[in-house]
Design a protein around this nucleic acid. Structure first.
Lengths: 147, 147
DNA sequence: TTAGATGCAAACGATTTGCGCGGAA
DNA sequence: TTCCGCGCAAATCGTTTGCATCTAA
């Protein structure tokens, strides 16, 4: 029975099913990582995943790295660059998101706008001979608090 | 037809003037780096800048790092994330560019499309209380050769 | 039973910084 | 003459990998 966790945008069961289908074993680290990502408000670094209170396993950084990398390969997780040293990750489920980042304090906001470039993907793909196109769009600026 | 860039899109003199105005000294490393960036077809890593045949100084990596970092602070150079480990840099002069990257071979193409999000910047800025907004847009896919 | 997952520790690569010297202004 | 820029070398930091052990299926 699924207790607590309100109305999650991401279904843990669905994610686990996808992982199983991808051939991943249902380990504690996997379940924890998915839980953390499913309830995250924004993309997280490997460190932030491990440090999250929802991540209830004591786990080597290398393990999380390999886990998330594998999830990324299976396209369950999406990597976001931002401009920070460490990569950020979020679930691929749900609708695509664009971001607004403060270049001073590094805060990340999710822009809930209708993505303005999705419709270009097909055109660019055929124009340039590419396939499997996706995009990453970030706005950088100075936030209200930093001004 | 694009090798000896005599008619550069970027004027070295103009760049040097901007650097001087920013308080930077006209060193060999600065001139070389600007020359390389001015004739580059696409954003380059610090390593690529140093390795460029146009970069005719023997120069410590730390020097290039500090130089480019300073140019970035003075908004003469723009940093691009991509998904590679090393950051890429290009001149801020000229019109904004969006990119198309092959997620297999890592090749970078400049998309010469009318940028579809520039007009959103003002709106997002005022909606979210941000200032000095700019954006970064990249498309990732699999290029023709990698298919 | 067995292929995949993990912990530990070392390797790596790209910065990033401290320090003393040298050169542009 | 003055500082800014430079080389050198060490420190950081986020991965990334090899290997022996463990464990989900």
């Amino acid at each position: 029975m699924s207790h607590s966790h309100d109305t999650e945008a991401h279904s843990l069961d669905g994610l686990l099913a996808a992982c199983s289908k991808a051939g991943l074993r249902k380990t504690k680290a996997l379940v924890s990582a998915l839980k953390v990502l499913a309830s995250a408000e924004q993309p997280l670094t490997l460190h932030q995943i491990a440090d999250s209170p929802d991540f209830d396993v004591d786990c080597d950084p290398a393990t999380i790295y390999r886990l998330i990398t594998k999830l990324e390969e299976h396209r369950i997780v999406r990597r976001i660059g931002f401009h920070s040293r460490a990569a950020h990750y979020c679930l691929r489920e749900g609708h695509h998101q664009d971001y607004l980042i403060c270049r001073d304090c590094g805060s990340i906001e999710v822009l809930d706008i209708a993505c303005p470039v999705e419709h270009l993907e097909d055109q660019i793909a055929s124009d340039c001979g590419y396939s499997d196109l996706e995009h990453e769009l970030e706005f950088y600026g100075r936030c209200g608090t930093c001004k």
